[in-house]
Amino acid sequence: MENIKEDFKNLDLTVGDVFSKDARLKARNVNVFYGSNKAIDNVTIDIGNKEVISLIGPSGCGKSTFLRCFNRMNDTIDSCRIEGKITLDNENIYNEKIDVVPLRARIGMVFQKPNPFPKSIYDNVAYGPRIHGLSENKEHLDNIVEESLKRAGLWEEVNDRLLSPGTGLSGGQQQRLCIARAIAVSPEVILMDEPCSALDPIATAKIEELIHELGNEYSIVIVTHSMQQAARVSKRTAYFHLGKLIEVGKTKEIFTRPRHNQTEAYISGKIG
């Protein structure tokens, strides 16, 4: 009979189950600093195998910073310092011996704004397999390109103009080209940082359908500002606020009866 609204005074404690039985990625007590500014504060969470999880929270809450920790994209920022541990299949990705280039093939990324290379549609997709030495011959590479474009739902729209520039495609098509580029190197995890924020509703729906299908093969971590998108595409949702992971739970529970007052306030449009 007790009220579900609990008074969580200890905000270091994330509400909900942060662990996953079949975790691929594990973040443990992760802190991220930009200079002296702490952007991520003691975050622990698992990303399950073939799980689509949304990271939500107000601007500046650290969700994109945290996403970029998973493929060491923050390494490119000089002032950025990371503490704690992140493992992929129990291997510490911040180990000095880890080469970030193959790591970023295993953990691919799709950005907010579609960023195709100034190359042909074919070369955009073929680029990764070439530099990672994944193709045996031209025919094999052709197959990888075709298969990746098919899985990205783009093949039917571009198969007659593979040598045209990728930048000539529409925004939605460019984003699907970027997804094809990411999956061409057979990743295990795909990170998506607001992948639909620059797209119209139809292009967004196509990407969301794609996320749904790709979720059967890959673990997908998606940062989104759209509550409805998080509700539509993910099975699990994590809410961040001021660098802390406030609550994690099944998406259908987070959006119907969140346990933490701050989660409730955010998804109801009461804090920005």
Binding site: M227, Q228, A231, F255, T256, R257, P258, E264, I267, S268
Partner: peptide, 9 residues
């Protein structure tokens, strides 16, 4: 309004 959580309830 696409209400969520307590609003939806």
């Amino acid at each position: 309004r696409a209400p969520q959580a307590a609003d939806l309830r």
